[in-house]
Write a protein that binds this DNA or RNA. Structure first.
Length: 270
DNA sequence: AGGGCAACCCGGACGC
DNA sequence: TGCGTCCGGGTTGCCC
């Protein structure tokens, strides 16, 4: 569920809250969420300072002052809350990192995880298969075309393929296709050069716009956080089956493409 | 190589 | 209120 804009947004807020802070305590309530025995996890995290946080694709990487790196993937339904115990959400907490009297709660980690790696090199090896970052300055139209030319398949399927492009999921793939005016089930290699150009621009536009509005996650990251989730009611097609297209008024269609819910407007998208 | 699909996982929403 | 049922959905791995 959380995709690139959500994770980037989380990263920016968490950097403000956590950079330079020391983890005073660790609680692991769900051992499947970590990749080592709890004792090892605790020994490597407790008492250590968070020196930086980065995002790669839909992952967040928490760099510790002992060289270890925490790798977070929220997968489906995972989210976080940062705050005091009295403001803790009434939800099952899988993992809790404490920073004095404030805590970072990891919630809804069903398939999601917070893994620990011994070094930056180890975690980079783990993430080596990911495709380019769509918002990186290195990701030029030339590189985009090179990607397209060596791949086949449906637009939707490729957009959510993390080895093709990283960070785009089910919601933003639909929003990008709507913005580009292209039907998600079109074959990638049948798009015209102007459609490719538009697609490239739409990827940037939609992701940046979503980030600017705090992504679509509904839960605030901390008490008084009014920024997170601002994009939730700005989605044009995602999860709007049967509702009117905001551009032309036609009904939004839902269709399964590669066993994924896909939403689009037959009138606005060709 | 791409498409299709099952498995993973379990909180919480929903129904009775 | 309380208990049972079922859904969601990114990712991996397997098969065709």
């Amino acid at each position: 569920m959380p995709e690139l804009p959500e994770m980037e947004h989380y990263k920016l807020l968490l950097l403000q809250k956590l950079r330079g802070k020391t983890v005073s305590n660790v609680e692991v309530n769900r051992e499947k969420s970590i990749n080592v025995v709890p004792e090892v996890f605790l020994n490597n995290v407790k008492g250590h300072q968070i020196i930086n946080i980065e995002r790669k694709a839909k992952h967040l990487l928490f760099y510790l002052d002992n060289g270890h790196v925490l790798l977070l993937h929220l997968m489906l339904g995972g989210w976080m809350f940062y705050g005091k115990d009295e403001d803790k959400p009434d939800r099952t907490i899988q993992i809790q990192l404490s920073f004095g009297n404030e805590h970072l709660y990891f919630i809804g980690l069903r398939l999601g995880f917070l893994h620990i790696y011994n070094s930056k090199a180890d975690v980079e090896k783990e993430l080596a298969g990911l495709g380019p970052e769509p918002l990186s300055p290195n990701f030029t139209f030339t590189e985009f075309m090179a990607l397209i030319e060596k791949r086949r398949g449906r637009l939707k399927t490729k957009l959510v393929d993390q080895q093709f492009l990283s960070g785009i999921g089910n919601c933003y793939s639909d929003e990008i296709c709507f913005h580009a005016g292209t039907i998600p089930k079109r074959e990638l290699n049948e798009l015209s050069s102007s459609e490719n150009k538009q697609l490239f621009e739409s990827i940037h536009h939609v992701l940046k716009d979503a980030l600017k509005h705090g992504g679509y996650m509904e839960n605030p990251l901390f008490k008084g956080d009014t920024l997170t989730g601002g994009y939730n009611n700005l989605c044009k097609v995602y999860d709007r089956e049967g509702e009117s297209c905001l551009r032309c008024g036609s009904k939004i269609i839902k269709e399964m493409i590669s066993s994924r819910k896909t939403f689009y407007c037959l009138n606005c998208q060709k």
